[in-house]
């Protein structure tokens, strides 16, 4: 067998070979041919062509140049995006700092990428209780509900509603009614639905086109939820300032 810059002298396992091919397309650039890839990765051509066909079938790679060349497919963007920390400019951090100084709740900046919730900037003094649950269970958090409320079909993005506490909404119709309320009032709430004893509320950050692209969240003990609600006006003003920073 041939040995190239990425070759290690032994025939690779299919999954390893596939990942190395994606890496090679990324390195050699759009339009690289199957033959060039086989040589670069150091793989028997027949194996390489078969793996390339699998990768194009699952759309991680696409064919360009009248089928001769390869490029990284759109599907890879989701993976790459997940690996990158969202960029938050210092002007936006200033807005958050100012609000944190005035309010005795956790103030978090949430960013929506596709149909996922990402944490843009979390309050250093009152950190999130579980970033893990926030990302996985949008139906149980205020920021998640705000995202779901503005998706064309939230049921497709979230087919199963998992029970996390005794307050979690797991009936799709009840959730649907609440999402309609979120759209009407332009704020979302949650009280002990994600983690017992913790409440939060979220107001949208909008792009120039009016799309909801992120949220400004307040989080604190559920017992002080009514005090939190009184701060929504200030939060909405800060969210408006953040909206102005969006391209």
């Amino acid at each position: 067998m041939t040995s190239g810059p990425l070759g290690r002298g032994r025939p690779p396992a299919p999954i390893d070979g596939a990942m190395r091919l994606i890496e090679a397309v990324a390195r050699l650039g759009t339009g690289v041919t199957a033959k060039e890839l086989a040589a670069f990765v150091g793989m028997p051509p027949a194996t390489c062509y078969r793996l390339l066909n699998t990768l194009t079938a699952s759309e991680f790679l696409v064919r360009v140049d009248d089928l001769r060349g390869f490029a990284i497919g759109r599907k890879m963007d989701e993976i790459v995006t997940a690996a990158v920390a969202p960029f938050v400019p210092s002007a936006a951090r200033d807005v958050l700092e100012e609000l944190r100084g005035r309010i005795r709740f956790g103030v978090h900046l949430i960013i929506y990428l596709g149909d996922t919730v990402r944490v843009g900037d979390q309050d250093p003094d009152r950190p999130l209780h579980s970033e893990h649950d926030l990302l996985r269970h949008p139906h149980a958090s205020a920021a998640g509900k705000l995202l779901l409320a503005h998706l064309p079909d939230w049921r497709q993005a979230l087919p199963h509603l998992r029970q996390l506490t005794e307050h979690t909404i797991i009936d799709p119709d009840v959730l649907d009614a609440e999402l309609a309320e979120v759209r009407r009032t332009d704020t979302a709430h949650q009280r002990g639905e994600l983690i017992d004893g913790i409440a939060c509320c979220a107001t949208p950050i909008r792009s120039r086109g009016g799309d909801v692209v992120g949220a400004l969240c307040l989080a604190g003990p559920a017992a002080r939820a009514s005090v939190m609600t009184e701060q929504i006006g200030a939060t909405m003003e800060a969210a408006k300032l953040l909206s102005d920073l969006i391209s």
Binding site: D77, T81, V84, S247
Partner: peptide, 13 residues
């Protein structure tokens, strides 16, 4: 639109 546009770095300019 089938080809990768690279990572989405968030919502801000």
């Amino acid at each position: 639109s089938d080809v990768s546009r690279g990572a989405q770095r968030g919502i801000f300019r």
